[in-house]
Write a protein that binds this DNA or RNA. Structure first.
Lengths: 222, 222
DNA sequence: AGTTGTTTAAAACAAGCGTTTTAAAATATT
DNA sequence: AATATTTTAAAACGCTTGTTTTAAACAACT
């Protein structure tokens, strides 16, 4: 009664509509009636194909998580030969793309954002499957930049400062568009934002880095 | 029928309970039944005293906004004699206190956070009355730090980087507590966080600052 | 005291929600 | 072709929501 594993037209249509609506409204505000109407299916189809609303949500979550990961692999373009600073730049850029892109691959990012602001029972799964690996990668990069001997609490603080910036540039749309209607922070500005966040953060870590990497102090020639 | 301007016991009790519940649940998830039960009042009391749920929400919003502003004035402790750097430190600390404090003065911060993640019709009022002045103050400080001649877009980017960090340290509780159960980021860590964000951000702006304040380049003696 | 206006109380209303039931249609299987 | 299984369709159920109705209790004022 749970999974009619076979692909049917209405099942696919529901997955599509549900992805869009859950991404827009979040779990609690999205209604199965809306989803079914948009999918051109009957109200009972959701319960038949996915058991209940939760089952549909979980299926949607897993499906679009796969799509998102295929489109933007967590370590996209990161090579072991790069310096930690270059890895950070790549990480930030990839992170921004994953959360700021529009269209279907972005639905997962929006689902995640909703989970973030009002966690459902699915939140623990997402944290473990998706957020933890990403955080671990970032913290390794940050630790490498700061040099050995740095306290883990420091690594966490700096990592959170970086993630906080990225998420805010995504989250703050409702505020910024009202305060500064002429300024745009969308998918087209990803390069600019990634560059800003990277330089800002690298400089922000410089003091701590120098403290842990005591090398020859010399004048910058410029 | 709108405002029974007189203060009655049940009206005050409803304001109190509504502040708590709206802060916890947000507008849409909070129910008038819950509020009235917790206030020891009848279900019809909210419609009688405030017209409808929206009227109650608006009253709560304005009431606790006043309390929050009285407790943490936006420019708390900022004196004109201070350097911009010192003003930034004070701003960040005050901002963190306003959004991270617990108890009744913090209810407004939580209301704001809910508006942020799912804006209601009251969002525009909040942006104008509360967020815009705060942003303007921050951007003046940032502009003063970066020096004259800096592009306004740059000022906005740096200001958003700062705000983003502050909000994330407040917002990320559900994630961080799962990823790092032993690390605490609560009201008791405000000083540590304010210090971290301030130093991180001041360093992050140093390059741009030097570009706009071309002065004698000299070795840091340390 | 008696009348008027204000405040509380209980019950019911209308609308929307997720879900279930029932049966018919479509598809696959023998 | 006949039977069994899967899929769609319509209607209704039970529940919760915000709101309204009705009437009783309280307070204020001439």
């Amino acid at each position: 009664m749970d999974d009619k594993k076979t692909n049917s037209k209405t099942r696919n249509a529901i997955m599509e509509a549900a992805g869009k609506i859950f991404a827009e409204e979040g779990f609690s505000k999205a209604t199965v009636r809306d989803i079914c109407r948009q999918a051109g299916a009957n109200i009972a189809a959701v319960n038949y194909h996915f058991g209940d609303k939760k089952g549909l949500y979980l299926a949607v979550l897993k499906y679009y998580q796969e799509i998102s990961f295929e489109t933007y692999p967590p370590n996209l373009g990161i090579r072991e030969t790069q310096t930690p600073e270059e890895k950070l730049r790549v990480f930030i850029r990839s992170f921004l793309m994953r959360i700021m892109d529009e269209g279907r691959p972005a639905w997962f990012g929006k689902l995640l954002a909703h989970e973030f602001s009002e966690p459902t029972w699915a939140f623990d799964i997402l944290v473990e499957d998706m957020i933890r690996p990403s955080y671990q990668l970032l913290m390794e990069i940050v630790a490498a930049i700061l040099g050995r001997g740095v306290k883990e609490r420091k690594v966490l603080l700096y990592s959170m400062s970086i993630v906080g910036q990225c998420l805010y540039f995504r989250h703050s749309h409702p505020v910024i568009s009202r305060l500064f209607p002429r300024e745009a922070f969308g998918a087209k500005q990803i390069s600019e934002l990634a560059d800003h966040i990277t330089r800002f953060s690298l400089q922000g870590m410089r003091e701590e880095k120098n403290k842990n990497n005591p090398e020859v102090k010399k004048c910058k020639k410029k």
